[in-house]
Design a protein around this nucleic acid. Structure first.
Lengths: 220, 220, 220, 220
DNA sequence: AATGAATGAGCTTTCATTCAT
DNA sequence: TATGAATGAAAGCTCATTCAT
């Protein structure tokens, strides 16, 4: 049948395949509404096999969260921290680019999963805070801070609050992707998410108000 | 033959009591993870009584959504539409005020509920689109449009996109209230939501960038 | 509202109305599949009222059986016993007539009810044996016996067995009335029951076989 | 990957075991009064296993009926149709023999089950008509017809009606077997069913009436 | 007497988990 | 290792029965 090597390789891949399947289904339907067998089937194995790799459905959930959260954040973080150009540029280009890779990956579902399940599994909260919220806020915070330091951004900026102004819509769009997104009746109402984030960043930078027009003017 | 008054009064109140209990629990734990009996108990009745008023747990969910969504949106809408002052003022005061009443009420949980359950109950999507998304976007859209028309907001504003910049953080904070909010380990990281929304509005108005400083003046 | 007299009259009628409703529904759907409330509704009263007259659903069943069985058998019995004509005549006319009144009345359902429920309520058996089987067999047995005694029927008749030949089809048609009878797809196959019983009696009397035709005679 | 043999064998046998158990209990207690778990237990499995093979209790009932009805009728039919001897002989020997095998098998319970449940599950009627009533009546009808054609039976015979005279007592005894039969208090009253059917056939053939006795003869 | 809201034991059904193969 | 038949605890739902009015 299969050579020992193939078997070995499949065996090694199993846990990840199961985690992927679990992430997909937990995000789509929620933890409680997902059957263990569905996860197994989506991963191409049988019910019993799932339990060879994870002792229970709940442990599977935790593994999914641990695994997915740890993986993905760090990667873009480096680039943002390393970035040497203007903060404006980082906000308009680098950050949306990074976000797009998150948005496009299945990991975007983690936001929905966390929001959905923290109340039932409070351990998730701590993990999420440590792995996502803190590092995420820190890196954006530093970016904004640098903008202030470099004179690009207004000196009186409330950096903490601004971080949320930057970040919350990005998360919200990830949530939509896995909730209302797939519902045809809503799709038509919402703009394309990539475009939306770029617009949002631009707007954040320049503000809604009609720009002050120096020299000759009667600005409000 | 004549129904006693006290009984009648209790009977009349039951559906609402059950809906309230269901909203609370469905939001907290999700639909699938909430047991019918828990809802009944929280409403102060027994399992069987729940089924006197709603034919199934699923119908209860739909009733919760129908009931809660329909109720709450309209109220602030009127005030926003009626508002005659400057758009800036509406954005800085009226809108945050309105949002605060939503945020404080249990109805704020609807956002979590919808996000969590649309994939499992697609009928929700249509209802949410019709009752919340469309009217909500329309009223904010008109507000921004008026700002543009009155020369308060920049003429080249992408109104559609700006609506999302305004709205998404407000929704996101409602989600937090019912997900990470109650987790002590996170609370410390996040600013007070009311303050956050007001900061967000201010930032959206003025932008991050250091105001262009023309030669002669002392701009704001 | 209602005068005391009317009330009194209704009150007196209640038990019978409930028994009638119960008979109808127990026969149609079986005891276990009939809900107490259905009986009450059909009798035009509310659930609670049923329990004012009968202490439990099971007691209601027993009352139905006691009441219905006792009532109906005796009546025709008298006439058969009193009959002074030929046994042949009794078999061809009197018996079918009697049976027709049973078949037409709701009491015909008792046969189905007994057959359906004896296994679950063995007390029924004794009652049925005493009230229906024994007197019924006795009266038909006497009829046949008289036929033999009077030289109408063959002398070597096994009366016990013949009673069953006479009676079983009559009961069977009562069963059909309440089971397959109402199913349109079967109706077409079955002959009209009254006609059938009369044919059956005639056949029983004369037999299937071509009468032996000895040379000289004009038999029958 | 390969299913072990012993397991496979058990799995193959399960549905039949469950159907057998269900037939027994549904006949004895009726569908509504039989608990799913009782069926499982009688079949030697647990509650859950039942639902591995049948999606619901109601589907189990339908399967029982489909399965049992289809199976059993045909078998004797062939022999009756193939029979080349006299119709009289067929009626006295072949038919009672066939009936006895039905009577002795658990399938005899089907008559009770059909009578008991058609009103609640009208689909049963059509199936019963097609699988039992029609073929059964046809084969007996042909038998009688042949008797007429061969000069054994009276030429003016109403064949349709006669079929019922033949058949109804046979069915009725099957019903008794599963209703009053097991009640000791009745048993004493009723003759042995096999004997009864043979007596019935003999009586049907020859009739109750004293044979006409012409003057000179050796009439049988 | 009559009502019908309320109850909770009990039944149907599901599904996480086990384990013989 | 992998399977999937089997289990039984637990969830959804029903309905006989009670009881305040």
């Amino acid at each position: 049948m299969t050579t020992p090597l193939q078997r070995q390789r499949r065996k090694d891949a199993r846990p990840q395949e199961l985690l992927d399947a679990a992430l997909t289904l937990f995000v789509e339907k929620g933890f409680a509404a997902t059957k263990a067998e569905e996860v197994a089937t989506l991963a191409g194995v049988s019910k019993g096999t799932l339990y060879l790799y994870f002792p229970s459905k709940e442990e599977l959930l935790k593994a999914v969260i641990r695994h997915t959260l740890s993986a993905d954040i760090a990667q873009g973080r480096e680039r943002l921290l390393a970035h040497q150009g203007s903060a404006t540029e980082a906000l308009l280009d680098l950050l949306p680019e990074w976000w797009e890779t998150v948005y496009d990956s299945p990991n975007s579902g983690m936001f929905k999963l966390v929001i959905t399940e923290v109340r039932n599994f409070p351990e998730i909260a701590e993990f999420y805070a440590r792995e996502v919220v803190e590092p995420g806020m820190e890196v954006i915070g530093q970016l904004l801070q640098r903008g202030v330091a470099q004179g690009e951004f207004r000196a009186d900026l409330d950096v903490m609050a601004a971080v949320h102004s930057v970040v919350l819509p990005m998360i919200m769009l990830c949530l939509h992707k896995h909730s209302l997104g797939p519902c045809s009746c809503i799709v038509s109402i919402l703009p394309e998410p990539r475009q939306l984030i770029r617009s949002h960043m631009a707007l954040l930078l320049q503000g809604l108000q009609t720009p002050a027009v120096p020299k000759t003017r009667k600005t409000r």
